[in-house]
Design a protein around this nucleic acid. Structure first.
Lengths: 106, 106
DNA sequence: CCGACGCGTAACCAACAGGTTACGCTTCCG
DNA sequence: CGGAAGCGTAACCTGTTGGTTACGCGTCGG
């Protein structure tokens, strides 16, 4: 998936869309200002990579919509353990920008 | 949480917002047409209740953003079990506030 | 039966979103 | 050093969003 598995430059990202480069640049700025991507300037190229951590708040909120009141507390506890294990591992794993399989473009 | 745990009428929902009632009504129509709420006309009141099932696609998509490629397969499998258990229980549980569903009016 | 209530939609308007072209800044290569 | 490349922003324009008020329809109670 774009930017999750590999960093891409603004031009490479723009190539995958039919809209103009300045339009893509505007979107990237919104994403950067929201903290959803991180950018790094290398020469005249600016590389972007996904920062998905802020999405956990969103996922939690949506999960609150689907979670019936009162029930499934035990399953919730288990899910929390799963989540914690995942986060613990992520904190230890090195952030290697190692390009892998290319995801579909929406 | 509003509409997840209890059905509310349009007026009761509108009371919880500062915007005008017609504005709330417009939002409710968008939610109804999207399948995110279900409404039932009782006399001159229209009651709404959340239908969160369509959100699972969204949650899955967002999870795909946060899931690093390759890793956490075992945790994913566990999470799938949690999800399945939850769904199995939901399919068996009686739909407690069972208002009869009315077709869209639009 | 009539007035009140609940509530949805039409029409209007302002703000915003999201595209474009033009331009400018920085970096880099010949 | 100058031209090319990469890329971000300004300015502009159009369509959409999202609020408002006014109004109308269906239901209900006196």
């Amino acid at each position: 998936m774009m930017l999750r598995d590999e960093q891409l430059s603004a031009g490479q990202i723009a190539e995958r869309f039919v809209i103009s480069r300045p339009a893509v640049s505007r979107h990237l700025r919104v994403l950067r200002d929201s903290g959803l991507v991180r950018d790094e300037l290398v020469g005249r190229r600016r590389f972007y990579v996904l920062r998905a951590e802020p999405l956990t708040d969103l996922t939690d909120w949506i999960a609150g919509l689907t979670r019936p009141a009162g029930w499934e507390h035990r399953l919730d506890a288990l899910e929390t353990e799963v989540y914690r294990a995942r986060r613990d591992h992520r904190d230890r794993a090195p952030a290697a920008p190692s390009p892998r399989r290319r995801e579909d473009t929406a």
